[in-house]
Design a protein around this nucleic acid. Structure first.
Length: 269
DNA sequence: GGGCTCCTGGAT
DNA sequence: ATCCAGGAGCCC
């Protein structure tokens, strides 16, 4: 599920509710979800205070007291929902009991992961070390240099978390449409002007998506269980066979970079 | 690069 | 009954 805007929204909506609270206990019902194993995980987080939340790419990080960290990755259907006294969401696999409420991790497809890490383990975490730059931190020149010399398809490159962190299938399709670029274009074929424009559009789309609370196309909800609204702004994602909002040509749907891909065959070159 | 895998459920 | 789904690690 969540790409950068959704994880950022979860971070913000949770942060205001749980920062400063202590984890009194946690119940793990799906052992493979956590690392290390459940008994150790529970012992590690018990009585730790939540000091703050951060996002890196599609990862969410809790900074706990005693320099312990929780690293969440939601994959496709993970949800992290805080409530003071509301009901438990369906597919809940883990429950944190906080001082003033409960924090549920739910995940229909069970692909998500939650790791408890010491600071030195966090700093040497392979997935985090491999991660590319945050889109907002790049200059146009730096973004252009990421594309230069890459013979891969533009879409494959943008989905690669080691190149740029945080984009997923929805936002790649949406940004490439807005930039008028074909997803199968060779990345290195972009001019500086095209690359610079694409980078600016990526930043604008992600900012707008964050401002509207992310895209709820399937089962994404924020840290308070609420839907986002950016799906209302989608122009091509999920619009196969519908007219292109710019030229009226029917939106194509094919597989590119092993992912379902929506684009306008006329507007995107 | 692409294919397979981890899972469950909704659409066709 | 079959295909498809906001992800990514592992295998050629």
């Amino acid at each position: 599920m969540p790409e950068l805007p959704e994880v950022e929204t979860i971070k913000r909506t949770l942060s205001r509710n749980i920062t400063g609270q202590k984890i009194k206990a946690c119940e793990i019902r799906l052992a493979k979800l956590v690392r290390p194993e459940p008994e150790i995980f529970s012992d590690l987080v018990k009585d730790k205070k939540i000091l703050g939340l951060k996002r890196r790419g599609k990862f969410l990080l809790f900074h706990l007291s005693q320099d312990l960290f929780l690293l969440f990755h939601f994959r496709l259907t993970g949800q992290l929902i805080y409530t003071q006294n509301g009901p438990e969401p369906p597919y809940t696999h883990l429950r944190f009991d906080l001082e003033n409420g409960k924090l549920f991790y739910a995940d229909l497809r069970q692909f998500g992961t939650i790791e408890a890490l010491r600071k030195d383990e966090l700093l040497h975490h392979p997935s985090l070390l491999k991660l590319g730059r945050e889109p907002f931190d790049l200059t146009a020149e730096e973004f252009y240099s990421l594309l230069k010399g890459r013979r891969r398809k533009l879409k494959a490159l943008l989905l690669d978390q080691s190149v740029i962190a945080g984009l997923g299938n929805i936002y790649v399709d949406e940004t490439l449409f807005r930039a008028g670029l074909h997803p199968a274009r060779e990345a290195s074929s972009l001019s500086f002007k095209e690359a610079s424009n694409l980078h600016q559009i990526i930043c604008e789309v992600l900012q707008e998506a964050i401002a509207t609370g992310g895209s709820s196309v399937r089962n994404y909800v924020d840290g308070e269980g609420k839907n986002g609204r950016f799906q209302e702004q989608h122009l091509v994602y999920g619009k196969r066979g519908k007219p292109c909002p710019r030229c009226g040509t029917l939106i194509s749907y094919t597989t590119i970079a092993s992912r379902g891909t929506h684009f306008c065959p006329v507007c995107q070159r």
